[in-house]
């Protein structure tokens, strides 16, 4: 169960405002990456976000660059999930690969209000908030496996280890 407040933004939230390009080859540590999250979109975010908080976006969330920090900067800030009307494909993969739940649910994305309390039940595939109760479609098998493994790196590590013991 994921519980937190909603941070709501609009359509086409791009990777430059999620994590500015000027830091992309130099900022490496967790804290440094976390501190630049949403710097050019909502300067109050990084200082005030709490564990379990949920980002709510419109259409094409995460469009633009392939930079993975656009997703990891959210993970490092404790964000529990991102709900959007639709995701740009590389951002979606980056989120899942880092164990960040990305939910496509246009109704919830539209209805949920800024700073509203949101709870997400992944098993029952429901999102609840003062604005209503919403159901989201099942995740694909591939995506579920990566999330269950704890991200892509963990999944690959496990595969490599079992290949080693098998040979």
């Amino acid at each position: 169960m994921i519980r937190g407040r909603a941070w709501k933004y609009g359509d086409n939230v791009n990777t430059d405002v999620l994590f500015p390009g000027k830091y992309t080859y130099t900022a490496r540590g967790r804290d440094e990456i976390a501190s630049h999250a949403l710097e050019d979109l909502d300067p109050a975010f990084a200082a005030n976000v709490c564990d379990g908080d949920v980002i709510v976006g419109g259409r094409n969330f995460g469009c633009g660059s392939s930079r993975e920090q656009a997703a990891t900067c959210l993970v490092y800030n404790g964000v529990g999930a991102v709900i959007a009307q639709s995701f740009a494909r590389i951002f979606y993969r980056n989120a899942i690969n880092n164990g960040l739940l990305a939910i496509v649910c246009p109704e919830a994305a539209q209805a949920i209000q800024q700073q509203e309390h949101v709870s997400i039940d992944l098993e029952r595939r429901t999102i609840e908030s003062a604005s209503g109760r919403f159901e989201f479609p099942p995740l694909s098998v591939t995506v579920r496996e990566i999330l269950e493994a704890g991200g892509l790196v963990a999944q690959v590590k496990r595969r490599l280890a079992s290949a080693r013991t098998a040979s």
């Binding site: 993969r93 980056n94 892509l152």
Partner: peptide
């Protein structure tokens, strides 16, 4: 693709 995917 992302960085983790290239690493993979």
């Amino acid at each position: 693709i992302g960085r983790s995917e290239v690493a993979a």
